[in-house]
């Protein structure tokens, strides 16, 4: 069976690759290359409003401030998960729900015109949601991958036994 740590490392690398993608886009543009496909790709998951994005020079990152904070928060959490044990699943679940509610509250107040959110509020709520999410989702993901691999091994062993019986 693949150990938990290996699955976490693979997932961490995938998230690192995802984050590198949207963080490098402004540098690619500044270097004079065409980055429109990259922006179009991340445009599938984010509104990419210029005024709500962090910039390098005049060029925005591939996603907005809140999305950047979520993904970078998740990346930090995944790195920490490689070093420490997982907390109680109920704590992780509640932390996830509370931080998602905070994001919804921040977005909702803005949409309803009650109070405008700020760069700081978007960074904090997004970052906290990003930090909390992996502690809730990753144990389920690791468990799921290990189950799938176990089933695959069992079915392969079943095939071998079946072949021997038919021989």
């Amino acid at each position: 069976m693949i150990p938990r740590r290996t699955i976490l490392v693979v997932f961490f690398l995938a998230v690192l690759f995802w984050c590198a993608g949207f963080l490098l886009l402004p540098f690619i543009t500044i270097a004079g290359f065409d980055s429109s496909d990259g922006y179009a790709f991340y445009g599938r998951v984010c509104h990419q409003i210029d005024a709500r994005s962090w910039h390098v020079g005049a060029e925005p990152f591939g996603v907005c401030i809140r999305c950047s904070a979520i993904y970078l928060g998740a990346l930090v959490s995944l790195f920490v998960m490689l070093l420490v044990r997982e907390p109680d699943s109920r704590v992780a679940r509640w932390a996830f729900l509370v931080t998602i509610a905070a994001v919804a509250f921040d977005v909702g107040l803005d949409l309803l015109g009650v109070a405008s959110n700020t760069e700081l509020s978007r960074t904090i709520t997004g970052g906290l949601a990003g930090v909390a999410a992996p502690w809730f989702v990753m144990p389920l993901f690791v468990d799921a991958v290990q189950q799938l691999l176990r089933k695959r091994v069992q079915s392969q062993q079943g095939d071998v036994i079946h072949v021997r019986e038919t021989e």
Partner: peptide, 12 residues
């Protein structure tokens, strides 16, 4: 209402 900076609408 101040929820979006001026000019954002045109850009969107």
């Amino acid at each position: 209402s101040g929820g979006m900076p001026p000019g954002s609408v045109d850009e969107l």
